[in-house]
Write a protein that binds this DNA or RNA. Structure first.
Length: 436
RNA sequence: GUGGAUGUAGCUCAGCAGGUUAGAGCACCGGAUUGUGGUUCCGGGGGUCGCGGGUUCAAAUCCCGUCAUCCACCCCA
């Protein structure tokens, strides 16, 4: 059998790395300046961590999509299908409720779901995640949403839509679910099988139905936002007021619902167009009560996550320019056997200041210059018998073709001068013209 | 789990009313060029035509099955 990557998993090749780092770096910068600290939790946890977080209504649909297995010690483990449960487990385990409140944590890394693959949906995918734990203040909700928008803007992504809604408090949800049952059960025969099942397990999710008949039945009905108690309503209004005041654009979506039980009040999603059926870049919401559900103190929290693959897809679709790979400043070419180790040694000595590469075998100047050219280097440094006799390197500017013989001892200063003139990370076109 | 499309070189694809030795472009290696790159020219390596079976004198080509990939349904934390 030919070896291949497992279905739904992907290699991230060298050419993919700059744009990937572009996303992580933007998140680190934007979130870091807001005082959000990075946390890294394990890729797998005891299955119970996720099972406890998920709730009853969702366990049927959700657990079958989790990668759960027994290890050799008989422990039942699950590859994380999301970040929140693991981060909150760490919050509890390390007593973070005693830290200055609120505790703001972000993470990034892979997550796993045993779903069928399509565009924007993979079995191993990657997320950037934010949690703000320890405050129920609506300003925290607004800040979380604003930070989400800020990260996307820092990436250069425009034209995404923030949809803001509220699923209310538990009693609001209970009231709304009862209302939906009352309204829809008389028409149960007309509903799709899926929606009938949802009506039984988690009625609000009938709002997510795609079946035209279901949608027609649901269209005239009230939305979760219409069922908020005064406190929930005030919370929602306060969040919206903050976003208005800060100039963060959003659309109110009264019909946003959640598949998981732990969400309270604020729920939001961000969608992008042109990236296929899986248009949600990410979403989040408030989860007061979840920390307690995981065995910790009863502290409130709010969080979000976005899918890195989907954001990159959206960036590509929007034709946003992304950083190119770093190119070498200098490529050293040994032109006789004696120069091979010499070139490698010189390169080592210069790497404190710049990216310097070299050929690993003796190269004729023609081949060596071709190697240098293909490496993307701005300069080639030829080393042969004549150079050795004079203690110099023959430096060639690959863009202009001009050459000079530079004493080896002056290479470090030359490197410093060059690196101060042009940053090491620029795209190909601009560097080619700058390099003259 | 369901449906559609697609599987030919590392990549993008042509070839497919069955017919000799399976092609192109790009990429890679070498030469023209034993001290000067990019351009150009010449040459080369690289293929179980996804896999299995069937039809046929003959299958990359037709038929059946199977696997994989993509897109969509489903599901969505």
């Amino acid at each position: 059998m030919k070896l291949r990557a497992v279905k739904g998993t992907n290699d991230r090749l060298p050419a993919d790395q700059p744009r990937w780092h572009h996303v992580i770096d933007a998140a680190a910068r934007v979130l870091g300046r807001a005082g959000v600290q990075e946390i890294t939790t394990p890729v797998f946890e005891f299955a119970e961590v996720f099972e406890r977080s998920v709730g009853e209504a969702a366990d049927l649909v959700v657990q079958k999509e989790m990668y759960t297995f027994d290890d050799r010690g008989g422990r039942r483990l699950t590859l994380r299908p999301e970040f929140t449960a693991g981060v909150l487990r760490a919050f509890v385990e390390h007593g973070m409720h005693t830290w200055p409140s609120p505790v703001k944590l972000w993470s990034h890394g892979p997550a796993f779901r045993a779903e069928n693959v399509q565009r924007g949906r993979y079995r191993q995918f990657h997320q950037v995640n934010l949690e703000i734990v320890g405050t129920a203040a609506p300003v925290a909700d607004a800040e979380a949403i604003a930070l989400f928008a800020d990260v996307l803007r820092a990436l250069g992504l425009r034209g995404v839509r923030v949809a803001l809604g509220s699923v209310g408090d538990p009693d609001d949800r209970a009231a709304y679910n009862a209302y939906l049952r009352g309204a829809l059960e008389p028409h149960a025969e007309e509903l799709s099988e899926t929606s009938r099942e949802r009506l039984r397990l988690n009625p609000m999710r009938v709002l997510d139905a795609k079946d035209p008949g279901d949608r027609a039945l649901v269209a005239p009905l009230k939305r979760p936002l219409d069922f908020l108690n005064p406190a929930s309503r005030a919370h929602f209004d306060a969040v919206a007021a903050c976003l208005d005041a800060w100039g963060v654009p959003y659309d109110v979506d009264p019909g946003i619902v959640r598949g998981l039980d732990y969400y309270r009040r604020t729920a939001f999603e961000i969608h992008a167009e042109g990236i296929g059926a899986q248009s949600a870049l990410g979403g989040g919401g408030r989860y007061d009560g979840l920390v307690a559900q995981l065995g910790g103190p009863d502290v409130p929290g709010i969080g979000w996550a976005f899918g890195i693959e989907r954001v990159l897809d959206a960036l590509a679709q929007a034709e946003v320019a992304l950083p190119a790979a770093e190119r070498p400043l200098l490529f050293l070419v040994p032109m006789d056997d004696e120069a091979v180790a010499e070139a490698a040694g010189i390169a080592r000595g210069l790497r404190a200041h710049a990216r310097v590469e070299h050929a690993y075998v003796r190269r004729a100047p023609g081949k060596g210059l071709r190697d240098a050219d293909r490496s993307g280097a701005r300069f080639a440094g030829l080393l042969g018998a004549r150079e050795r006799a004079d203690g110099v390197v023959l430096l060639k500017d690959l863009a202009s073709g001009s050459e000079r013989r530079l004493p080896l001892g002056q290479l470090p200063d030359w490197i410093l001068a060059e690196t101060s003139l042009a940053p090491a990370t620029t795209d190909t076109e601009s560097t080619a013209s700058d390099a003259v």
